[in-house]
Design a protein around this nucleic acid. Sequence first.
DNA 1: AGCTAAACGAGACGGTACGTCCCGTCTTCAT
DNA 2: ATGAAGACGGGACGTACCGTCTCGTTTAGCT
Lengths: 197, 197, 197, 197
Amino acid sequence: MAGDRPGRKRSEVSRAAILEATRDELTAEGYDRLSIDRIATAAGVGKQTIYRWYPSKSELVADCILAGYIVRPVIMTPDTGDVRRDIATWIRSFAKESRTPSAASLTRAITAAAAEDNAVAAHYQDQVTITQETLVTRLRAGVDAGQLQKDTGVSTVAETVVGALLYRILTRQELDDVFVDELVELIFSGIVNREER
Amino acid sequence: MAGDRPGRKRSEVSRAAILEATRDELTAEGYDRLSIDRIATAAGVGKQTIYRWYPSKSELVADCILAGYIVRPVIMTPDTGDVRRDIATWIRSFAKESRTPSAASLTRAITAAAAEDNAVAAHYQDQVTITQETLVTRLRAGVDAGQLQKDTGVSTVAETVVGALLYRILTRQELDDVFVDELVELIFSGIVNREER
Amino acid sequence: MAGDRPGRKRSEVSRAAILEATRDELTAEGYDRLSIDRIATAAGVGKQTIYRWYPSKSELVADCILAGYIVRPVIMTPDTGDVRRDIATWIRSFAKESRTPSAASLTRAITAAAAEDNAVAAHYQDQVTITQETLVTRLRAGVDAGQLQKDTGVSTVAETVVGALLYRILTRQELDDVFVDELVELIFSGIVNREER
Amino acid sequence: MAGDRPGRKRSEVSRAAILEATRDELTAEGYDRLSIDRIATAAGVGKQTIYRWYPSKSELVADCILAGYIVRPVIMTPDTGDVRRDIATWIRSFAKESRTPSAASLTRAITAAAAEDNAVAAHYQDQVTITQETLVTRLRAGVDAGQLQKDTGVSTVAETVVGALLYRILTRQELDDVFVDELVELIFSGIVNREER
DNA sequence: AGCTAAACGAGACGGTACGTCCCGTCTTCAT
DNA sequence: ATGAAGACGGGACGTACCGTCTCGTTTAGCT
């Protein structure tokens, strides 16, 4: 069989401890100030056990994301039949959850990590895609129901929404109701003045 | 007179050398791997000369932005009378410029810096605001001309556009024509299906 | 019968491989830089197989000496009837053999080991004693033959000779003919001037 | 002028602290178990300050000897006119001093160091030479006074005496009166039986 | 012209963290 | 039961940088 090599197996206990410690450090200190020494100590693990599995700080963070230690809780939206209301609810939930200081700082940290490293960026992308899934699904249902235009670039819309929200988080601006409302209005109605057409 | 203290004056040659070296390091290595020692050596300057003026890495980067060493070239748009065409042109220019590898990596580095540090974030915000200025001005003109809706949240629109573009840069996705076109369509027309109203 | 326990018996092949690898490491690197990991790899043996039999680095080296992997070839001297000539021959042989670079470095390594560790020192002492044996025997024969003084502290003489030789090896001085001749003269005749008595 | 380089000067306080800590570690742990980390901590010094001046553990120990932090107190001998008595006194003093546990362990450590490293060996040699100086001087005076044979290889005698003593220290044998007396007898009278000539 | 003082390059300092090597132990599979 | 393979918690290695602190030197304003 494949995995029947001799030698001790990888300790899942250690793996979990390392990833938890990494997430905590990331939240508390940010990506820039991550310290492998500190993570090892906090996880009660030898440094080599970290380096054995992760060639670099970024791979560690990447696995942290992959293993689901750094997740925005997936936001669900009921399908009330009114797309705009449902999407607005989703955005409002996201905004609310983002106002938690620790969530915001973890988001900033992980975004910085993604910005600086290719490997992290890939996993980050996957993770955000999952977050967007509900949004995309609801939008698609709206298209099918004829409420949204047939040729709507559903994923572009989702990305634009998430991009706008992340931008506010990164620049440390409030995700307040005014912004959310304007964003929803923008997304749905656009800015063209149709009265004078 | 103020500032007429005795002693040697701050060397502008050194200041410029430091900021240039910082920008180069930032482009090449990213914010995370910035090294003051290396900057000092590259700039041919003693470390103390850096620390005399910048209490920390982030302040240095902040001044680097402030002094215009890290700028996206301000993109101008002619007012052809057609708002949508003009905005599309602006976005397309931004996208094109962002496809330069060094511009993209510098953008990522500085965004990471902003994500991790408050002081940088503030200057970053200012800088992006300047970048958005043309966009905002053109949009406002469109509103005045009656082409756009009166209550358009002009700066929210600008932020959403920039947010979406930055998001693509951060996640290392192509800023291709399809995305740009869909973004423009989204911004102007929204996604609601007006046929079946 | 004793030792008839169940299970696989200790592999003499492994034991030999370990001791040989230890001797080689010792010669090449010295006691200070001995590495159990490297020995295990070189011997094609698991580390545990070493630790099962040797509680520490020093015990390993001690057994290495005990098992005769680290020996100065026993120097024999014919009994020509002339003690002084025979002893001189012995010393000259020892000196010659010590001029081999690998023999010298192994001697230094093992001496360092003995200096730093009690257990090694004991075995070292035994080993040197064996080396001295021929010397002591020949000296004793000389005493019996009336050529040497009756109350000669035979083992003190042997130790002094060996001590002097080792001292030259440790300090990396040549064991040249001049030194050997002076040593022999010293041992046999002493330094007192008998002419003017 | 020569030494007018820019930059902060080497801290003599740190140098002294490092050498003292090294000597203490050497006495307590031996050469093999020397730890630069521990020395740095004990000396209240950054590790780099050690590595800046000493490329390796052995260079550090070498400077420690050179700077006189590891010395056997120089043993003086009055010239009573009786060479044998004076030399015996010297040896007895050396033996007595060597019975101090810390002196013995430091001697063993430094001898191990000399055995394993060329650079240390050179300085060690110098240091021992100084120790032997008194001995050599007294012997030479004995030769001049006609008490010793004219062609006595004075330094070979000194080396043999010291070599024999060090050998006993290395192998952890007592430097008792019996040994000392036999050594003195051997050195002065040799072992040849003159009665029956 | 001489004095005082700030800024400069250079570089040593006490430290923190890095990524690697090795220690001695423990676990797993194969013989 | 023994053995090789190899992961584990931990200690030390030698290096890179941090931010601070002297140094000798240069440049300015003030007397």
